[in-house]
Write a protein that binds this DNA or RNA. Structure first.
Length: 870
RNA sequence: GGGAGCAUAGCUCAGCCGGUUAGAGCACUUGCCUUACAAGCAAGGGGUCACAGGUUCGAGUCCUGUUGUUCCCACCA
C-alpha cells in the first residue's frame, strides 16, 4: 500500500485513535501471568481545559504506558477527573451571578444540582482533549473523585481516621479566604511579598505617663488586641511586665506579658497580641491565658470593634490609622515589605482567624511516610525532590480539611442538639450515638478536595473492596506530577496509601517541571500567554506537539514552549513519512526478515539500530525521556535517512535482483523496528505508517517492543564502514570548498590499506562522493600530477580537479592540517607516556587513545605524502 | 532565616556512570529543485562550559567558595 504524498495529521489522527479504541488496545487486564504496570492519572479538574502542562504530563504517562504495554506488561493507565471543590464551586457561582443569583438563593440542594449539571456538561471536555493527544488510557476505568466508589472510600477513610483519633475537630487558627468564604489548609495559601507599611502606635501604660510603642503591619487587628508582649530579658521593659496598657480606640485594659517569642531587635521589641488573628499570638495567648476576641467575620468585616463594626478590613485599617493620627498616637509609619498570604484559587489575601474546623493529625501519619522515602521503598526522580518532600513532611502541621463549601464530600459528622456530642458514622445515623437523641444535625461543611485525591491510587481500583485489580496493580508503578503538587498530592497519597493500604501508593514519583511561555513566564489566564494545545495539534499534529514537549527536556526542569520547535518536529514527522514512502515505493518484497547476505552498510545500520534500541530503552527505564527522544530523532534523521537510505540507492536502482531484494528487506526491517521504538513518542504517525507496511500484523501499539540483539551487533564491520563514510564526507567537504558543482563527476582513485572495504563500497562512493568511477589501489599511482588529494586516516582519495585549485592555497591548507595533526599526536603521545594515565585509566580509555594515535599518525603520513606530491 | 535549581554557540536548551576534537533545534553563511522529503540535501562559521580554588592520570561533569538569577519552604509582629 502506498502512502499519500503528504502526511496530514489532521485527517490521520482521529481515524487512528478510533482504530485503537475499536481494537480495545487501551484496556488493562489484570492478568496475573504478566508483570503489572500501572499509572493513575493526576486527575485534572473537571473545570479544566487542557493546557500545555496537561499535554506534557500526559505525554509522559502515555510514553511510559505505551512502552510497557509493548514490552508485554499488563499495563493500565487509569484516567479520571477531580471535582476540584473550590474551583468548580466558584465557576458555578459566577454563572449564577450572571443570572443575579447567589448559591443561597438556590439553597444547598438546588445549587448542587446545578453543579452536577455543569459537571455533566463541561466535565467531559478535558477527557476529550486528552484523547486528541493520543492518550492510551483505559477509558472504561474512567473515574471521578465524587463518583460513588470514591465517595465510599472517602467516607471510610474519614471514619477510620476519626475512630483512630487521627481526625479531630478543634478551634484553631486557620487561613480564611473571605472571597471563597472558607477555611484553607496551609498548602492552599501562597505567600507573596508585598510592599506595605509598618505602623508604630503608642499604647499608654495605665495610671502612668509612660507608654509602649508597638509596631504592626495590620493595624485593624488592634481591635482584637488582648495583650502586649515583650521579651522576658528585655531590660527596657522589665519594669512594665505585669502592668497593663489602655488599648487605644477601644479603651480596653490589656496586660503586658513577657514571652520568649518576642524578638528584642525587631521593631520596638513590643508586640501587640491578637490571639484570634495571628497564629503566633494565638500560641502566646494560650500560654498566658489571654482573652480571645474575634474582630473579623467571614467576609473580613469588622465585628466586636465598636464604631468600626461593619467596615471592610481595609476601610477599617484606613479609618483606624486616621483616628490614631488625629489622636497623636501614631508615632511613625515605615515602608515595609512583608509576606502576604493569598488564596491559591482566587488570589484574595487570606486572613488568619480562629475557627472551629476539622483537622487531620499529621504526626503519626508523617512518620511512616518519611520512613519509606528514607529507606528507598519509594523513590523520587529526580532524587532532589525527596529532600523537598522530607523537609515538608518533617515540619508538617495538622491538616485543616473542612471547607465551608457545598460542592464536595460532606463531612459524615452529626451534632447532637441534646448532649452536644459528635456522631461520626459510615452510614447516615438517625440518632446520636451518645445519648440516642434524634435531634442530630449533619455538619454542613465538605472536605478539602485533596482529601479524595489522596486516596486516588487505591480508590480507583475499588478500595475499600478487595478487588483483583487492587491486588494486582497496587502499588502503582509510577506517578508523574509536577513539582508544584508535591505537597498537595504526592505527600498526601503517600501517607494515605501507607495508612489504609499498608503500602506505598507508587514505587516512583517522577516529578516534572512546568511549561513556560517563550519568555520564561508562567502561563496564566491573567497574562493571556496561555497556548491552547488544541490549536497546536490542529496545526502541527499531536505527534509534533508531544515530541516538542519531550525532546531536549531534562527531568524536573521547567521548559519553555517554542512554537517554532513544533514546526521542526512537524518537519521530523514529515521526514519519517517520506522515508517510509521511499521504502514503500521501492518495495517488491514483503519479507521484513533480514537476508543472510548482509553488505557492510547493512551491518553498519543494524549495529546503529541496535545501539539506539539499547540506549533508548535504558533511557526510558531511567525516566530520561528527553535524551531518549533526541537519540531517536538523531538515529532516524541522520543515520537512517541521510545515510542508510542513500546507501541503498545503488542497489535499489541496480540490476542485481538479489541485491535489490536484500536492500529492501534490510530497509523494511530497520524501518519497522525504528517505528516501534518511536511509537511511544509519536503514536499516530508510526501507527499510520505501520498499517501500510506489508509485514504489519495488527496494531503497532500492541506489537513487540524492540530488544537489543547480540546477533545483529557487527561492531568491527560497522567500524570498517565508518572509514567509507569518513571518506565520503571528506570528498564532499573538499568539493564544497572548491565550489565544484554536483554535476561535475570526476574519476576517483582511492589509495588505501583497506582495499577490501573500499572495493566493496565502490558503488556507494560513486553515488555519495559524486564520482564518475572509482578505482581502489593499495599504493599511490606513479604520477599524481594534476590530481587533488583528499586525505583521511584510512585513505587518500585523488580527483582530477587540479585546474580548480590554487596550489599555494592547497599547500597552506595541508600545512595547517599537518600542524593540527601533529598537535594531536603530541597530546596523545603525552597522555600515553604518562604512566599514571596508563596505569590508572581503564583499559578501554587507554585503548581509545592508542587508536587515536595510530589514526593520527596514519593521517599525518597521508598528509605529508600528498604535500610532497603537490 | 532555611533549602533547592539554574548559569554551556546569537536565542532556547541537551550533555545520562568524570574519559576521543563539547552537541541539538532555531538563526546565520555558501552551494544544490541529486525522481522519499525545499517541511529537503550537502558543506561551513560560531563556545575561556559564570568566576576562583580544590580532588583526579583526566573536570562542562565531583568538592569548596564567590557572583548573578529563579523557585520552594518558614509564625519576625
Amino acid at each position: 500500500m502506498e502512502l499519500e504524498k503528504v502526511y496530514d495529521p489532521r485527517a490521520a489522527e482521529p481515524e487512528i485513535y478510533k482504530y485503537w479504541l475499536d481494537g480495545g488496545y487501551f484496556k488493562g487486564v489484570a492478568d496475573t501471568q504478566k508483570r503489572p504496570f500501572s499509572i493513575v492519572i493526576p486527575p485534572p479538574n473537571v473545570t479544566g481545559q487542557l493546557h500545555l502542562g496537561h499535554a506534557f504530563d500526559n505525554t509522559v504517562q502515555d510514553i511510559l504506558t505505551r512502552m510497557k504495554r509493548m514490552q508485554g506488561y499488563a499495563a493500565v493507565w487509569v484516567p479520571g477527573t477531580d471535582h476540584a471543590g473550590i474551583a468548580t464551586q466558584i465557576k458555578v457561582e459566577e454563572e449564577l451571578r450572571k443570572e443575579g443569583l447567589t448559591r443561597y438563593d438556590l439553597g444547598r440542594e438546588k445549587f448542587l444540582e446545578r453543579v452536577w449539571e455543569w459537571k455533566e456538561k463541561y466535565g467531559g471536555r478535558i477527557i476529550e482533549q486528552l484523547k486528541l493527544l493520543g492518550s492510551s488510557c483505559d477509558w472504561d476505568r474512567e473515574r471521578f473523585t465524587m463518583d460513588e466508589g470514591c465517595s465510599r472510600a472517602v467516607r471510610e477513610v474519614f471514619v477510620a481516621l476519626y475512630e483512630k483519633g487521627l481526625i479531630y475537630k478543634g478551634s484553631r487558627i486557620i487561613n480564611w479566604c473571605p472571597h471563597c468564604v472558607t477555611a484553607l489548609s496551609d498548602t492552599e495559601v501562597e505567600h507573596e511579598e508585598q510592599a506595605g507599611h509598618f505602623w508604630h502606635i503608642k499604647y499608654q501604660i495605665k495610671d502612668s505617663d509612660e507608654f509602649l510603642i508597638v509596631a504592626t503591619t495590620r493595624p485593624e487587628t488592634m481591635l482584637g488586641d488582648t495583650g502586649v508582649a515583650v521579651h522576658p530579658d528585655d531590660e527596657r521593659y522589665a519594669h512594665l511586665v505585669g502592668k497593663t496598657v489602655i488599648l487605644p480606640l477601644m479603651n480596653r485594659e490589656i496586660p503586658i506579658i513577657a514571652d520568649e517569642y518576642v524578638d528584642r531587635d525587631f521593631g520596638t521589641g513590643c508586640v501587640k497580641m491578637t490571639p484570634c488573628h495571628d497564629p503566633n499570638d494565638f500560641e502566646v495567648g494560650q500560654r498566658h491565658g489571654l482573652e480571645q476576641i474575634l474582630v473579623l467575620d467571614n467576609d473580613a468585616k469588622v465585628i466586636n470593634g465598636g464604631k468600626y463594626n461593619g467596615l471592610d478590613r481595609y476601610d477599617a485599617r484606613r479609618e483606624i490609622v486616621a483616628d490614631l493620627e488625629s489622636l497623636g498616637l501614631l508615632v511613625k509609619v515605615e515602608e515595609h515589605a512583608h509576606n502576604v498570604g493569598k488564596c491559591y484559587r482566587c488570589g484574595t489575601t487570606v486572613e488568619p482567624i480562629t475557627s472551629p474546623q476539622w483537622f487531620v493529625k499529621m504526626e503519626p501519619l508523617a512518620a511512616p511516610a518519611i520512613e519509606v522515602v528514607k529507606d528507598g521503598r519509594m523513590k523520587f526522580v529526580p532524587e532532589r525532590f525527596a529532600k523537598t518532600y522530607l523537609n515538608w513532611m518533617d515540619n508538617v502541621r495538622d491538616w485543616c480539611i473542612s471547607r465551608q463549601l457545598w460542592w464536595g464530600h460532606q463531612i459524615p459528622a452529626w451534632y447532637c442538639a441534646d448532649c452536644g456530642e459528635i456522631t461520626v458514622s459510615r452510614t447516615d445515623p438517625t440518632e446520636c450515638a451518645h445519648c440516642g437523641s434524634a435531634k442530630i444535625e449533619r455538619d454542613p461543611d465538605v472536605l478539602d478536595t485533596w482529601f479524595s485525591s489522596a486516596l486516588w491510587p487505591f480508590s480507583v481500583f475499588g478500595w475499600p473492596d478487595k478487588t483483583p485489580e487492587l491486588d494486582f496493580w497496587y502499588p502503582t508503578t509510577v506517578v508523574t506530577p509536577g513539582y508544584e503538587i508535591i505537597f498537595f498530592w504526592v505527600a498526601r497519597m503517600i501517607f494515605s496509601g501507607l495508612e489504609h493500604m499498608d503500602d506505598v501508593p507508587f514505587r516512583t514519583a517522577y516529578i516534572h517541571g512546568i511549561v513556560r511561555d517563550d519568555q520564561g513566564r508562567k502561563m496564566s489566564k491573567s497574562l493571556g500567554n496561555g497556548i491552547d494545545p488544541q490549536v497546536i495539534i490542529d496545526k502541527y499534529g499531536a505527534d509534533a506537539l508531544r515530541m516538542n514537549m519531550i525532546s531536549g527536556v531534562s527531568p524536573g526542569n521547567d521548559m519553555r514552549f517554542y512554537i517554532e520547535r513544533c514546526e521542526s518536529m512537524r518537519n521530523f514527522a514529515n521526514k519519517i513519512w517520506n522515508a517510509s514512502r521511499f521504502v514503500l515505493m521501492n518495495l517488491t518484497v514483503t519479507d521484513a526478515t533480514l537476508p543472510d547476505a548482509l553488505e557492510l552498510e547493512d551491518k553498519w545500520i543494524l549495529t546503529r539500530l541496535n545501539a539506539a534500541i539499547r540506549e533508548v530503552t535504558d533511557n526510558l527505564e531511567r525516566y530520561e525521556l528527553g535524551v531518549a527522544a533526541t537519540k531517536l530523532y538523531d538515529f532516524l534523521w541522520d543515520d537512517f535517512c541521510d545515510w542508510y537510505i542513500e546507501l541503498t540507492k545503488p542497489r535499489l536502482n541496480g540490476d542485481d535482483a538479489t541485491a535489490n531484494a536484500n536492500a529492501q528487506r534490510v530497509l523494511l526491517y530497520v524501518l519497522s523496528e525504528t517505528l516501534k521504538l518511536l511509537h511511544p513518542f509519536m503514536p499516530f504517525i508510526t501507527e499510520k505508517i505501520w498499517q501500510s507496511l506489508p509485514n504489519a500484523d495488527g496494531a503497532i501499539m500492541v506489537s513487540r517492543y524492540p530488544e537489543y540483539d547480540a546477533k545483529l551487533d557487527f561492531a568491527a564491520d560497522a567500524d570498517a564502514f565508518t572509514l567509507v563514510i569518513d571518506a565520503i564526507r571528506a570528498v564532499r567537504a573538499r568539493r564544497a570548498e572548491m565550489n565544484v558543482p554536483p554535476s561535475k563527476r570526476p574519476i576517483l582513485t582511492v589509495v588505501t590499506a583497506k582495499t577490501d572495504v573500499f572495493t566493496d563500497s565502490r558503488d556507494l562512493l560513486r553515488k555519495l562522493a559524486y564520482a564518475e568511477d572509482v578505482t581502489v589501489l593499495s599504493a599511490a599511482p606513479s604520477s599524481v600530477d594534476g590530481l587533488v588529494a583528499v586525505v583521511t586516516d584510512a585513505a587518500t582519495l585523488y580527483m582530477p580537479l587540479a585546474q580548480l585549485v590554487d596550489l599555494d592555497a592547497e599547500r597552506a591548507r595541508i600545512g595547517r592540517d599537518i600542524e593540527k595533526t601533529k598537535k594531536e599526536i603530541a597530546s596523545t603521545e603525552g597522555k600515553l607516556a604518562n604512566t599514571e594515565f596508563t596505569a590508572k585509566a581503564p583499559d578501554r580509555v587507554v585503548q581509545v587513545e592508542r587508536d587515536k594515535l595510530v589514526k593520527a599518525q596514519a593521517l599525518l603520513a597521508n598528509l605529508e605524502q600528498s604535500l610532497r606530491n603537490l
